[in-house]
Design a binder for these strands. Structure first.
Length: 429
RNA sequence: GUGGCCGUAGCUCAAUGGUAGAGUCCCGGAUUGUGAUUCCGGUUGUUGCGAGUUCGAGUCUCGUCGGUCACCCCA
């Protein structure tokens, strides 16, 4: 590649969202944020960069994210170990601890923004991707688990989405998992000959993951492994029953997936994923669960937590598929001008109309009368406001309807501001 | 990180190893002041990059970079 003239490109896996798509993104964002607020969640914003230790401690040393997907570096100025956040929950809990947000009781919070994971990009998976997250801090009961899940169920139709299904699992407490894990590892060791390299590697670092293998031989071993469900105590079972009961009461359908294990170590009890088949291999559109140990693990006063994160790129892609894209915005008027002294006349006209609250686009970049008219039409504007030497001399404006066969009228310059709203209303009708 | 497919004009795509093209977009004109329809004309390229084979490479080979999909993992 030539060093001098080679064009710079965006970083791999990090995308520009162009104006043509931003309308859809913004309508998606507006719907989601209004929905979060309506359910009583309040916005919080955390930095994109945190101490690397935060994610290592929260997500877990042996997870894929921490092992090989984090953008981490040592700050050249003060040698701090920093990381571009790969997810939001850790930062959100850190912020809650740091600012004692729970001093006066439980909190419902939401946030949105980009996350970073150094993975090989593919459809629905990018190195910079946007998430909305919601978290409930300080509530131990299954009622808030149910609330978070039912919330999502209500959101999908608002976004115009169909065919998103819910998978649910109960992964119990840390103790229950470690008892199960001990027996599971024993079982895997007993059948080590049938495991592939990947399974052997994970057998000790993350044995639950072995159960998810697609290798038929490994699957056979996994199928005979002791199920986690057999290790769950009364408290865990009761929590899950409470959740299922509320979901049923709300009419939210789900399927139990005993192999649903999320890739972050902090989860306990409830884990869930909302999944679509319409996006290829990356079908999880929203995922979450409970993390009652995370506050203590990050050095805070122990407090229960539960939350979810949804992937904006995936949901926006689904909205596109479902034809939920909003119509392109239409300016009220496009102002074009040609001739001696017309620029200032047109410029102040546009300014006055904007001052009255109208959306007005000035022709820019010169051009012949014809090409200005073409741009006026292409802008989608309802009206063309034409300023030529004639109009300036007469102290008038020509107003042309661009959404019809071409009605056109002349109006005195002084009357335009007063009559514009009425003209526009007639055109839009 | 591994693998399949693909890189030609801003965009969508052509071009039996033999002079790089079309549509669209944009600009100008037909209408010296009127868009969306019509007609005419015009601009647009180191064929991703670098080597190799060949008289000759957009085309074949190798490398490299990028895109895409999948594995893996997850939002």
């Amino acid at each position: 590649m030539k060093s001098e003239s080679a064009a710079l490109r965006a970083i791999r896996g990090m995308n520009d969202v162009l104006p043509a798509d931003m309308a859809l993104w913004r309508s998606f964002g507006a719907i989601v944020e209004a929905w979060l607020e309506r359910w009583g969640y309040r916005a919080i914003r955390m930095p994109l960069v945190e101490n690397s230790a935060l994610f290592r401690r929260a997500i877990g040393e042996a997870t894929d994210i921490v092992e090989k997907e984090m953008y981490s570096w040592r700050d050249a100025l003060n040698a701090e170990e920093l990381t571009l956040r790969p997810e939001g929950t850790a930062s959100c809990v850190r912020a809650a601890i740091e600012h004692s947000l729970l001093y006066d009781g439980p909190k419902r919070l939401w946030y949105g923004g980009p996350m970073y994971r150094h993975e090989r990009p593919q459809k629905g998976r990018y190195r910079e991707f946007y998430q909305y997250g919601a978290e409930v801090f300080g509530c131990p009961g299954p009622d808030v688990d149910a609330e978070l899940i039912v919330m999502c169920a209500r959101l999908w139709p608002e976004l115009g989405l169909k065919g998103i299904r819910l998978e649910l699992n109960n992964i119990g407490s840390a103790d229950e998992r470690s008892w199960h894990r001990a027996d599971l590892v024993k079982h895997l060791e007993a059948h080590e000959g049938k495991l592939d390299a990947d399974a052997k590697r994970r057998m000790h670092s993350n044995p639950l993951r072995v159960l998810d293998s697609k290798n038929p031989m490994v699957r056979e071993v996994a199928a005979q492994a002791p199920p986690l469900a057999g290790y769950l105590g009364e408290v865990s079972l009761a929590h899950f029953e409470g959740l299922k009961q509320l979901l049923s009461a709300a009419g939210v359908e789900f399927t139990l997936n005993p192999r649903l294990v999320r890739g972050l170590d902090y989860y306990n009890l409830t884990v869930f994923e909302w999944i679509t088949d319409a996006l290829g291999a990356q079908g999880t559109v929203c995922g979450g669960g409970r993390y009652d140990g995370l506050f203590a693990q990050l050095g805070g006063k122990p407090a229960p937590g539960v939350g979810f994160a949804m992937g904006c790129e995936r949901l926006v892609a689904l909205m596109k598929d479902c034809g939920s894209a909003p119509a392109a915005p239409r300016p009220d008027a496009y102002v074009l001008y040609q001739g001696e002294g017309t620029l200032e006349y047109a410029f102040t006209l546009a300014d006055a109309l904007r001052g009255a609250g109208h959306s007005v686009v000035m022709n820019a970049g010169g051009g012949s009368f014809k090409s200005q008219m073409k741009r006026a039409d292409a802008s989608g504007a309802w009206l063309a406001l034409i300023v030529g030497e004639d109009e300036v001399r007469a102290g008038e404006i020509s107003v042309k309807n661009l959404r019809s066969a071409g009605e056109q009228q002349r109006i005195g310059r002084g009357r335009v501001a007063g009559e514009f709203a009425a003209i526009l209303q007639k055109v839009k009708a």
